[in-house]
Design a protein around this nucleic acid. Structure first.
Lengths: 197, 197
DNA sequence: ACTTCATGTGTGCAGCGTAAACATTTTCTT
DNA sequence: AAGAAAATGTTTACGCTGCACACATGAAGT
């Protein structure tokens, strides 16, 4: 019984990496992005100020991990409560509502996920999770509206249309750019025009 | 001739405020948002590190002024090359193309304009310029697609649809979230589905 | 047992925003 | 014209930040 795998707490702290991510995530939403610092994360977890360096090469690496985690959860939100047998219209509805719900539940993280110079956009893990989200978006975009051109181009336009619409809606919503009175009883589904005659 | 208004250079520097904004804007696009500092702006202009404090209460105030300026230019981009006599379809086309062009020309500034905690969203000047942009968006949103509900609600949904779509498209485009091959010869106008039967 | 490596601490440094005291120049008031 | 007041700029200082570096410690492998 020399290498049992029952207790995965390897040593000093436990698993500091995930603890730092959790603390960073909480600080991000509570204090705002510009008040998030590695030192505050370290202090929240109870380690020295330089301990995070053992798990993240720099601050950008931590933010990238945070964004990667965010895309994973966004994917989960979009797939929530959808049975495999559901038709595309049902999946589409659930995915759109889930997408917006994630942004509303994690506005600061959502903004970070689309920031241009705070996360390293070429990170493989990040790209993988982004790709997983895009698979769902591509699926629900099929048979959506009428676009001109040949087949592949039509698919691309449909996907760009759906992603642009839901992303823009989510961002403008969480950035409070919509008038409150316009939002009464309105969801992302109401903002999609009737596409067929 | 004691108070002639011919030379508006008041004294020491000239007009440091605008010079700082110009420097900040250049640094923002070249160095990226996370490498923009007041001290670098001051150095670029050739004044001491604390001189900006006389013109901007804090860094957020400078970024807010930058965003305000951005919305002014976005408004100008949307109105470019449009005669007053043009019909709504022509204005819509020009405004959408102008909107996206501004985002492409000023990606870092565009991101700043929609950031949640770096600009003070309640600034009156900012709100005024945001409102001016929204007036154009509301105008081009009329008679767009088919939405259910009574009159005012339909207008609101149309506006939210158009702004969500063009903002999402602009942001995803500048964040390189679209596949390059999908973008070949595609503009914002191609991503809007045929809304009528 | 000894080495090796992963992980955590302590120290130090340059850059940052910004507060405070002071200097200088313009503008206002008389 | 003269002095007061305001606007603008500099210097200094302080605490916070990311991070490089040397070192300590505990776990794992041989």
């Amino acid at each position: 019984m020399k290498s049992e795998t029952k207790d995965p707490k390897p040593y000093h702290h436990g698993n500091l990496k995930q603890a730092l991510l959790d603390a960073a995530r909480r600080l991000l939403e509570t204090e705002g992005h510009s008040n998030l610092s590695l030192r505050k994360c370290a202090e929240a977890v109870g380690v020295s100020a330089t301990a995070p360096q053992n798990h993240f090469a720099n601050k950008a690496a931590l933010l990238t991990a945070l964004a990667t985690q965010g895309y994973g959860e966004l994917h989960a939100y979009m797939g929530r409560g959808v049975s495999d047998a559901a038709d595309r219209a049902a999946r589409r509805q659930a995915a759109l509502l889930g997408y917006v719900a994630f942004a509303q539940d994690n506005p600061a993280l959502y903004e970070l996920m689309f920031s241009r110079d705070r996360v390293s956009a070429s990170d493989p893990d990040l790209l993988r999770n982004v790709g997983a989200c895009f698979v769902i978006l591509a699926d629900i975009s099929k048979e959506f509206g009428r676009f001109e051109g040949e087949g592949a181009k039509v698919d691309a336009k449909q996907q760009m249309f759906v992603w642009s619409l839901v992303h823009g809606y989510a961002q403008l919503l969480t950035a409070n750019r919509f008038k409150k009175e316009d939002m009464q009883g309105v969801s992302i589904l109401d903002v999609i025009p009737d596409l067929h005659s």
